[in-house]
């Protein structure tokens, strides 16, 4: 199987060289393969957000190597990183982060817009994706007309827009009630079955237990990395 993400000895230090220098990550090494469903679990302050930003090519490590799909993220410029994110990563955030006063359809189109895809192709794909997540009836609604669960589903459709190598979900059910959370997790399982690679960042062990692979991070170090058999029943 192909490694999608290779992290080697990742160190992240803030305020390097200053009196308040702080090392958050102390040498993280992880390899994530295609079609894995991985949970990265940690308490707040464990460094999981920092790790997520590095995996998401939003930030660069102070030391170490990050290869994403054979792209060397360390050596990328700011513009190149934008490009890498656009083409390889599908973000799903805890608070949805949809653009307000913009329809669900236009929200899903956005990553494709930045990729340079033509309007007609964008609209077609966006409609397909919204149908996939069950939001075809609300395509033209603005985010403020949608419930939390609906917003998250639109966000997931958006994350799939450019057919990314990985879906990076940061506490995707954090703002949702238990029923809606269930729907969202079911959606992730469905996508996983369809071949997608999903990384779920969470502080909830209960949620993590749904994933076939659980990486636990504590105080900036990986403390465990286990694979388990999941008998997932919808």
């Amino acid at each position: 199987m192909q490694p999608v993400i290779t992290l080697k000895d990742i160190v992240k230090t803030y305020n390097l060289g200053k009196p308040n220098e702080l090392e958050i990550l102390h040498g993280i090494t992880i390899t994530i393969y295609e079609n894995e469903f991985v949970a990265i679990v940690g308490e707040s302050g464990s460094g999981k957000s920092t790790l997520m930003n590095i995996i998401g090519a939003l930030d660069k490590p102070t030391k170490g190597e990050y290869i994403l799909n054979s792209l060397n993220v360390n050596k990328a410029s700011k513009d190149q990183m934008s490009d890498i994110r656009n083409k390889n990563i599908g973000f799903v955030f805890q608070n949805f982060n949809l653009i307000s006063r913009t329809s669900a359809l236009k929200n899903v189109e956005l990553p494709m817009l930045y990729k340079g895809i033509s309007s007609s192709k964008r609209i077609k794909k966006a409609k397909e994706l919204l149908t996939l997540v069950g939001m075809e009836k609300r395509m033209n609604h603005d985010p403020n007309e949608l419930s939390g669960g609906q917003k998250q589903r639109v966000a997931i459709a958006r994350a799939l827009a450019n057919n990314p190598s990985i879906i990076l979900a940061d506490e995707p059910t954090g703002a949702l009630d238990s029923l809606t959370s269930r729907h969202v997790m079911d959606l992730f399982h469905k996508l996983h079955k369809q071949g997608k690679t999903i990384i779920l960042i969470t502080h909830s062990n209960k949620l993590a237990k749904e994933c076939p692979r659980i990486i636990t991070i504590k105080d900036g170090n990986i403390v465990s990395d286990v694979r388990q058999e999941i008998n997932y029943v919808n």
Partner: peptide, 16 residues
């Protein structure tokens, strides 16, 4: 600001 952050995360370059 948040909207700009979202756009950048989704792939908008600084020049965009």
């Amino acid at each position: 600001t948040r909207e700009i952050g979202i756009r950048m995360a989704l792939g908008a370059k600084a020049s965009t």
